[in-house]
Each structure stands twice: as structure tokens, then as C-alpha cells.
Amino acid sequence: MPSRILLPLVIVLALAAPFLTANTYFHHLMVLWMLFSLLALSLNVIIGYIGELSFGHAAFFGIGAYTAALIGMNFGLAGIPGLVLAAIVAGLFGFVIGYVSLRIVGPQFAILTLGFGSIIYTITNYWVDLTRGPMGISNIQPLGLWGEGGPALTGARGYYYLTLFLVIAFAYACHALLNSRTGRAFIATRENAPLAASLGIDVFRIKLLGFVVATAVAGVAGGVYAHYLTVITPDVMSLQYVAALIIMVIVGGRGTIAGPIIGALIYVALLEALRALGPLRLVIFAALLTASVIFLPGGIVSLWRRITGEDTRPREAAE
């Protein structure tokens, strides 16, 4: 079982990584990687465990970001209360939208979430009184413990450790979930919903539960993102980010825990490596994505299985 040695090694490496270099830009990229990992892991709950494709996930990220920013600005509660509220608000939106959309499945669900995502994006763009419209919100204060005063997180290194902690905590939660009764209900629902229902699983409730958890975590990621970058615009909810998140999950490997984290790394690293190419960058990126989807449908994680012969894929549907 190599993962018994591998996992602590990876965690130690991740903890030591910021001290390998004093380059703050490198630290910035590490924070982005962790933020996207958290988002991709949350989307993975929907894509990998429930087995539905959501095109509205960036909207919940945006809701979290705007909630945290507005709470910080209007009530001076930038910090843990802001993040908790970001999770609650994003989760509430997730509950309402999930309640409506999860009644249908497959492609219809994907498009319906895309529609909801666009509504939230449009409203954010036009509700200038609340969100300042396309200008976005700037000068968001750094993340403190409890509002202003007291210790506040500054610098990329601090945010890196915060996001790393969140990623490890959520990854562990996903792992624990998959080995629990509820987790098995998730997998049963994904594999064969009618059969799962016949075993007494409330399919709709299980799906809704997964959807709400995923959106609430996306809200937390949004809150941290807003405090870290200090600027947010409605663009964080645009189709570009939706596509990016889905790319991370699928290219990394859906239904696994390592997959979305690797996918996020590839996304951040590849865009950085191709930065010198200017506008050609996204063309190459799109070509790589398409090629990886066509030639490696199981994601990068499936390469590991091909090399070692170990079954890392948790009971995938044989379509």
C-alpha cells in the first residue's frame, strides 16, 4: 500500500513548500492552486459522487466572494463570521437551486444549472446598488479573526496555510464520507438511481445533500478568494471560470480525491507556463484539454492506475 507512505510525504512537502523559495509570486500561485483545489474538490462532490454535471458552480463561488466582501464592508465582520456567512448564503442558494434542478437529471440538469448560473451572473452585473456592477468591489480588508482589530492574515504565505488547511480538511471529509453509510448511498445513487431508490435510499435527498455541501464549500472558497485578492468583479462567475472548474475535475479525474487537486495544479501551472505566448496561450490550453478528454477520459489519475495496476478509481460506472 504505497499510499500509506505517500500521503504523509505529500502533506509534509505541502507544508514545507513555501519555505523552498522566498519568491512571493510563487507563493501567490500556490494560494491559487489551493483555492482552485478546494473549488474543484467541491465540484467533484457533484460530478464525481452524485454523478451530475453542474455548470453553475462558479456562481456559488461568486456568491461566497460577494457575501464575504459585503459583510466585511458593511458590518465590519471580515473574518470567520464572514466566511461562515459566505458558506451559509451559498449553501442556501444551493438548496433552492438544487431543489428545483435536481428533479431532472443528465444533460437537462447541466443546462438548467448553466441557466441559474447565468441568472446570478446577470443580476450581480446589473444590481449596481448592492454589488457595484461590472466595476466590482475593491479594497476588501484582509481576513481577520473577528472583524477589524486583532490579528489579520496578510501575505500569500499565511493564505497558503489557511487554504491548505481547508483543502486537507475537506479532502479528509470527502474520504470519510465515501467510507460512510451516506457515502455509499451517494455511490449507489450515481451508479443506478432506480435501484438505489428500491433499497430505500431517498435519491432526491441524497443528491440535494451533496449539492448543498458542494455549494457551501464553494462559498467558503469564494470568501477566502475575495479577502485574498481584495478585488472581486462579476467575472468570477463567468462561463470561463465554469469551464475552468469542470476542466480541473475531469482532466484530473472525477470521483477521486487526488484528481481534482492535480487538475487544479495542471490548470494553474499550465496557464503560467504558457503566459509568454500571449493570446495563443488559451488556444494551446484548449487544444490540450480536448486532447486529454479524447485520449484520457478517466483523467490523469487513471494514468497512475495504468502504470501500477492498482485500482484507484472508486467503482466507476461501466458505460
Partner: peptide, 26 residues
């Protein structure tokens, strides 16, 4: 991709969309 999972086809078309948008911009 006609025999692949529907997510794969959807993503392939998403890749094509990104390719055409950014190629068009170029």
C-alpha cells in the same frame, strides 16, 4: 467519441468552444 460517456463528449465540445473562441480572437 460516440461510444464514450456523455460527460466526455460534452467536455470535448467545451474544448472545441474554447479553441474556436480563442482562435477567433487570435
Amino acid at each position: 467519441l460516440r461510444k464514450e460517456h456523455e460527460f466526455t463528449i460534452l467536455l470535448s465540445s467545451l474544448g472545441l468552444a474554447l479553441l474556436l473562441t480563442n482562435g477567433g480572437e487570435l
